[in-house]
Write a protein that binds this DNA or RNA. Structure first.
Length: 564
RNA sequence: CGGGACGUAGCGCAGUUUGGCUAGCGCGCUUGGUUCGGGACCAAGAGGUCGCGGGUUCAAAUCCCGCCGUCCCGACCA
């Protein structure tokens, strides 16, 4: 490709609407352009990167025995009604009608479609296992698109779905995908953390997310630098140093006019440390009003609640059940409602909690003596610096971008959509599913987040839009153009992707654009070095400048690339 | 959906507080010339519904009302 004939609209200045580095650089390097909030065009260079990512994913999926298909982006609504997700996912669905008023939606994911396919086409255990995947555009009406390509309304995803006869088969399929994912991210040049994820109320036993640590990430993860324990904050646990028990005391009610928060009680005249308070939260768990207790210094992790459906109770519900409003709630003496308590409260004495009477609290609470706890469990959110659950290290909390997810689905969709097969005995059984996603377009952003410097992108070789850029510095100089042209054609002939910057711009422009776009290797052909009989090679991610004779250039570049 | 900011040439911005003649600046773009190893210089140009609609006024980029769009924080996130 000759630069003069390409469409690479690099930007000298940082676009106003871009805050995170991948967004800025993808725009500045001329890879993407925004059409609307969360909707982007991939320009030629961006598309080349996207295709490379896709191809790596495709090769590894194929190698893992998965079968590529292409499912529709538009789905009749009825399929989604069969699993109930037309309703449960309603808010993120793009919906429309055709000319005869039939209702459609744009697929936000494809469990329904692939399971319908399996139900229709797979009948016998002899046809199993199968792993079916696609690379497809997905549509989600995100309430808030943001961060460039990281959270968008239209994006490209690789989604794979495994169908097995039994749990052991699912375990194998899952393991195969897990290993394929490791290879995929390594080839993409992404350093990922595989973290235990919250698998949701419907989930199976295992769910791992592949995360790229980045300040632009929307997920929070807890990691242990010492033993590599890593978990999504929704799931993370920790060793907590239990504070000193307060003096065992007498239960006593005291007036706290105007006090509504834990923090209020930490101030004079009460001076009650947050960790010696009991935070009483009221939730509707599986439609049953339930009290949930954590220490005042902790925050509840809703994902850990043992329920399929959970929502905070409304103030009216709370007032009706406990006789007080949030701010003065407590579990002392409550027997009509189940009480769940975090493990950190076990055995605590001398605690302070609400009295279920507005503007009054209780002190001297002995949790074991005064509160009827139905269930002890871990429902708190891990905080930075707490002990690692697997070793004696300390956890760090970081932001990360989720680029992949492997998940044991179970039979939710196969049951709803009748994906059954006949086993050896002729009995009808339901297929057991796993699903495995990779955010392909999101990976492009994640790679840029991880691979850039102050000059621009530093593409890993495997996904670079071109592996080499050849820069003839003075296009008016015949010898320069002759040498540059020979190297350009030589690289092409060796199967190396190369762009020739034949623009008439000054050298500085070319150097800066090459750095900005981030080609792994740059070849500089200029009069200064030509008189010495050499051209210059520069590896984007290194500072060192090498010189080689034009005749040796192609071979040296091939060697350099092989090391990248 | 709640909170905040912004919307003026392709990009980045000034001008809006305090209404006033032909709406400016830098970069980029076009033409000519001089240049040519890290974003050149000179000269001449092109390019604008000041987000949209309504209102106030002799007069609106500027004031008022409504709407739309984009970004950030939060809520949400199969």
């Amino acid at each position: 490709m000759k630069w003069s004939q390409a469409l690479i609209p690099t930007l000298r200045e940082v676009p106003k609407d871009a805050e995170i580095s991948s967004h800025q650089l993808l725009l500045r390097a001329g890879l993407i352009r925004q059409l609307a909030g969360g909707v982007y065009t991939f320009l030629p260079l961006g598309l080349r990167v996207l295709r490379k990512v896709e191809q790596i994913v495709r090769e590894e999926m194929d190698a893992a025995g998965a079968l590529e298909v292409l499912m529709p982006a538009m789905h009749p609504r009825e399929v989604w009604e069969q699993t109930g997700r037309a309703t449960s996912l309603n808010d993120i669905l793009f919906k429309f009608k055709d000319r005869s008023d039939r209702q459609w939606l744009l697929g936000p994911t494809h469990e329904e479609i692939v399971t319908s396919l399996a139900a229709a086409e797979i009948r016998s255990y002899k046809q199993l296992p199968k792993n079916i995947y696609q690379i497809q555009t997905k549509f989600r009406d995100e309430p808030r698109p943001r961060f460039g390509l990281i959270r968008v309304k239209e994006f490209i995803m690789k989604d794979a779905y495994s169908f097995d006869v039994d749990q052991a088969g699912l375990d194998r399929s899952y393991q195969t995908m897990y290993e394929a994912y490791k290879r995929i991210f390594a080839r993409l040049g992404l350093k990922t953390l595989d973290v235990e994820a919250h698998s949701g109320a419907m989930g199976g036993s295992h769910s791992y997310e592949f995360m790229v640590a980045s300040p632009a990430g929307e997920d929070r993860i807890a990691l242990c630098p010492k033993c590599n324990y890593a978990a999504n904050l929704e799931k993370a646990t920790s060793r907590v140093a239990v504070g000193l028990a307060g003096a065992a005391g007498v239960l006593e009610k005291f007036a706290t006019p105007g006090v509504r928060t834990i923090e209020d009680l930490t101030k004079p005249p009460y001076n009650c440390a947050a960790q010696n308070q009991i935070k009483t939260l009221v939730y509707m768990l599986n439609d049953k009003l339930t009290l949930v207790l954590v220490r005042g210094c902790d925050s509840l992790n809703e994902a850990k609640l043992p329920a399929v459906t959970a929502r905070p109770a409304h103030p009216e519900e709370i007032k009706a059940a406990l006789g007080a409003l949030p701010g003065s709630l407590g579990a002392v003496g409550v027997t009509k409602l189940p009480v769940l308590a975090d493990e950190t409260l076990r055995g605590r004495t001398g605690m302070v909690t609400g009295a279920n009477e507005d503007d009054h609290h209780l002190r001297g609470v002995d949790v074991g003596r005064d509160i009827t706890v139905a269930q002890w469990l871990d429902v708190r959110t891990v905080q930075d610096g707490e002990g690692c659950p697997k070793c004696d290290g300390a956890l760090k909390i970081d932001s990360a971008i989720e680029v992949g997810h492997v998940f044991k689905l179970g039979t939710k969709y196969s049951t709803a959509l009748g994906a059954n097969y006949l086993d050896e005995k002729g009995e009808s059984k339901v297929m057991i599913m796993g699903c495995y996603g990779i955010g392909v377009s999101r990976c492009v952003a994640a790679i840029v987040e991880q691979c850039h410097d102050d000059k621009g992108i530093v593409w890993p070789r495997g996904v670079a839009p071109f592996e080499v850029a050849v820069l003839p510095l003075n296009t008016g100089h015949a010898e320069t153009m002759k040498v540059a042209g020979e190297i350009y054609r030589g690289l092409q002939a060796s199967g190396i992707s190369v762009i020739l910057d034949d623009r008439t711009d000054r050298p500085g422009v070319k150097f800066n654009d090459a750095d900005l776009v981030g080609f792994p290797v740059r070849v500089t052909v200029g009069e200064k070095s030509l008189v010495k009989g050499v051209v210059e090679l520069k590896v984007r991610r290194e500072a060192e400048l090498r010189t080689v004779t034009p005749a040796d250039a192609v071979g040296t570049i091939r060697d350099l690339l092989a090391q990248l």
